[in-house]
Simulated scan of single mutants.
Amino acid sequence: MRTITSNQRSRSRILYFWLLILLSIFLLAFQGPVWKVPASSAAMKNPVKYAGENTIIAKGLYTKHCKSCHGKSGEGDGTKAEELKTFPGDFTTDEFQDQSDGAIFYKIRAGRDEMPAFDKKISEEDSWLLVHYLRTFQ
């Protein structure tokens, strides 16, 4: 029978510790940042109707403010996307589409990292129209 020395136990603990650190770094790197939305914002309902002229307005807003990063079909492949440090996001994914209208509205208005806040650039009504338009990328 082999006896494990305290020196071997110490080495095993150190190795185990570094493996945990490396695994944590790996998981964080591939998980991507979580965008926290206040519960009050996530619960907001879209008060704007999406019909007629509003669909044209929404498409124009997207083209002017979003398309260069998020791309023509919302897949995060716009002309400026490669210049960004972070992936701009893909509106066609279930993960994106499963968000509430209020959560999407909040993200448009507040911005984060390289995405600018649009609360001073786009009216609340137009931000809600953009929420409707982003739903068309399903």
Rank of each mutant, 00 (worst) to 15 (best):
T5E: 14
F26D: 07
A81I: 07
T92L: 11
K72Q: 12
K80L: 12
K67E: 15
K36S: 10
A42T: 07
A110D: 13
D90R: 09
H65Y: 15
A110P: 01
P33S: 10
Y62H: 13
F17N: 04
A81P: 04
I4M: 10
R9D: 02
G102E: 12
V48N: 07
K59V: 02
S73P: 01
I122R: 08
D77R: 08
G102L: 05
G71R: 10
V34W: 08
K72L: 13
K72G: 00
F30V: 05
I57R: 15
L22W: 13
S73G: 02
V34H: 09
L84M: 15
N46G: 01
E53W: 11
E95L: 12
T63F: 12
N46P: 05
Q31E: 01
I122C: 08
A103T: 06
G89V: 07
G111Y: 09
L28H: 04
D101R: 11
R135H: 02
I104A: 14
T79K: 15
Q138L: 08
L129V: 07
S24I: 11
L20C: 13
T55E: 15
G32H: 07
R112F: 14
G52N: 01
Q8R: 13
N7G: 07
I4E: 03
I56N: 12
R13S: 02
R112K: 12
L84A: 04
K121H: 11
V131D: 06
Y62W: 11
S10G: 11
F96N: 00
K64W: 01
Q8C: 08
F96W: 12
H132N: 14
K36L: 12
Y50V: 01
K80A: 12
H132I: 04
D113Q: 10
H65W: 14
N7Q: 12
S6G: 13
L15R: 09
L129Q: 12
A103Q: 03
Y106S: 05
F91D: 03
F26T: 05
V131I: 04
N54L: 11
A103N: 02
P38T: 06
L28A: 06
Q99T: 05
T92Y: 07
A110K: 12
R11V: 01
D90E: 10
F30N: 13
E124H: 10
K120Y: 10
P47V: 07
R135V: 00
Q8H: 08
E83G: 09
G76R: 02
S12G: 06
D119V: 04
D90C: 09
E53L: 06
E83Y: 11
M115R: 14
M44S: 10
L61M: 05
L27S: 02
F137V: 00
L134H: 00
D119Y: 15
F26N: 09
M1W: 09
F105S: 09
K85L: 10
